[in-house]
Amino acid sequence: MSKNTSNRYVEISNLTKAYPNPFGRDIEVVKDFNMILKKGEIVSVIGHSGCGKSTVLTMVAGLNPISAGELAVEGKQISGPGPDRSVVFQSPCLLPWMTTLENVMLGVKQCYPHGTRKQRRQICEHYLNLVGLADSMHKYPREMSGGMQQRVGIARAIALKPQVLLLDEPFGRLDSLTRMDLQDTILEILDREKITTMVITHDVDEAIYMSDRICMMTNGPEATVGQILEVPFARPRVRADVLDHPRYYDFRFALIAFLEKQEHSKDAHIQAVHEKLQQGSEEPVSA
């Protein structure tokens, strides 16, 4: 095991989430989730809805207590939430009583406690500029569209200068045009800032376009990594080029085939886990 921190920048090992089951063994929603992220890498986590992808992300973010397993960033053990891992949620999660600028400022204040007010403001303005909201600094969230609100959410997350950026289906609630627009915005920023990123998504094309590797999750309970797919397209990416790539559909097919297989084997799997829970046996589920 090499201790090369840039190759093993984020190490997630045997991450498990168990919820107590009053009538048997604990239900393990996610079990033994392993993943290693290189510095600056963008990794998507894809899977059927309800498979536990968001659980993984919230555990990494520290918002959801970890039942078992470990998490290390840059070789350091991490527990609990912190601005080193900033999150963009599915809903923009802006505080409706604050303007755009104040929303971004809230986090910046925590991360730059020694900066002057003016400096902090400049930081906020810089990131709002990056996401294209220079004109809407003093607007309230209710005065903006969903896409614009999500941009604020992104600016707020990136302004924290996080070591790891966690995106939890950030475009899930947007229409497809806005979604593409926002994907490009994020990729542009990530190409520049080189932030290690984990994206939760259920959109196959989004996963291929945005990420360096795609982590496919099996269906829960006891969801875990089913397969990892490297996406070799060079960065910075141009959407049209990626889509036109002769092998694009091979990647797409691999992902869809995986998801379909999960869907088909779901019933059998659930049956197996159910039996196991009832018997309380120690045998691992062999599918």
Binding site: A61, G62, L63, P81, G82, P83, R85, S86, V87, F89, S91, C93, L95, L106, G107, Q110, L160
Partner: peptide, 14 residues
């Protein structure tokens, strides 16, 4: 208070 808002507070370590 919306759970999302509390999550924001947690992430920002307010």
């Amino acid at each position: 208070v919306e759970k999302d808002h509390m999550n924001v507070a947690k992430v920002l370590r307010l």
